[in-house]
Nucleic acid binder design. Structure first.
Length: 120
RNA sequence: AGAGUCGGUCAGACGGUUGCGGACAGAAAUGUCUGAGGAAAGUCCGAGCCCCGCAGGGCAGAAUAGCGGCUAACGGCCGCCGAGGGUGACCUUAGGGAAAGUGCAACAGAGAUAUACCGCCGCAAACGGGCAGAGCUUCGGCUCCGGGCGCGUUUUUGCGCCGCCCGUUUGCGGUAAGGGUGGAAAGGCGAGGUAAGAGCUCACCGGUCUUACGGGAACGUCAAGACCCUGUAAACCCUAUUCGGAGCAACGCUGACUGUAACGGUACACCUGCCCGGUGUGUUACGAAAAGCGGCUUGAGCGGCGGGAGCAAUCCCACGCCCAGAUAGAUAACCGUCCACGACAGAACUCGGCUUAUCGACCGACUCAAAGC
């Protein structure tokens, strides 16, 4: 998984919602938190509010693609939980990628010296 | 070309870059192949598989409901019959029993499975009116005339009783023709019959059952006979047939824990030097957390447009194919080109059906109408 480890357990998601810092964009909500594993871990949530199985699958795929695009700028040692919002279904993955990148920079997780490495 | 009926197929395509699940190869890097649906959905039926239960029988409950066939099976499919709809192709059909019994039939109406309101008829009583016979007629009437008996009276006339006829009222009874109500009023209709009436009788027609004939059967018919002839069984019910329960989070395996039971009867150690007794070590079986592995895809498999049987569903044979097996869950992202501008929608043990959702495109068979040859 190119250094991305999936978060699977329910208690990990619960911990993220209660303890991690969060940022909001029209398409996603990002929870981020330092971990002690030394790698990047990602969990994706697409609830039934989004729609049926087809819509939820598309939302997860868009977020996976967008996050992979951001990966070069993200330092190791962080957990992320990204929650899909309804409007994500009507945009391209590049839009979501820009949105996530801006949120992470605002959070100070990745600094602007990585800007040159971003690829669309 | 118009209007329509039925059946079937497809479910954006191609190219590039970056990625994901699985299989195979490889020491590895990596490479090759492959990767959602017609409904994957609803979880409504039927099975496979699997676990639990089970001597046998009954009750309750549920499902099905014309006949024959197909199928592993079905409540599914095909064909046929009956009923209904359409000019037609064709479509619809929860299609056993009301003569086992019970219930219900609102409103209206006299009365709803039995009724007597009006009407019609008979008998009785009361009251009122009338009375033979004949002639003429312009059909309106007019004329001769005024039931029987008794009493009183010269007679007229009056009174009483009786008989018959008519009308009104009341009572008792008959009736289901007619009236009106209703979805439905004793199957319909006509004739006979009668005090008036009535399947009371008869003819014809309908219904149910039986027989006869035809058909493999449902069923049909020219017929014969019988008849307790309103509707309702998606009201109870009756009849026939079928049904034990749970589901892959099933179930199996590995297992920390050392828990339970049995065996062995003393091999070793300890309490204790010896006997009895006890504890631990032993063997077998069972239980079992987290987690993992299996189940998990080669099967009632798919295609079969080749051949055969059949009206068809379907079956048989040749031939070809291997077509997701994930386990927080893989098919995507981005770019380009084209067009009809892309609907409903995501496998989760597997099949056969049903039902529901669905932008459109195409193919085949057929019907109606019009025109032409």
């Amino acid at each position: 998984m190119n250094g991305i480890v999936k978060i699977k357990e329910n208690y990990e998601f619960k911990r993220a919602y209660s303890k991690a810092d969060s940022l909001v964009s029209p398409y996603v909500v990002v929870y981020y938190r330092k971990n002690s594993y030394g790698n990047v871990r990602l969990g994706i949530t697409a609830g039934k509010k989004i729609g049926g199985a087809v819509q939820r699958n598309r939302a997860k795929r868009l977020i996976t693609a967008a996050f992979r695009g951001c990966l070069p700028m993200i330092p190791a040692g962080y957990d992320f939980v990204i929650v899909a919002r309804t409007r994500i279904l009507s945009v391209k993955s590049t839009t979501v990628q820009t949105s996530i990148y801006n949120l992470l920079r605002k959070a100070g997780v990745c600094d602007s010296s990585y800007d040159e490495k971003i690829t669309y």
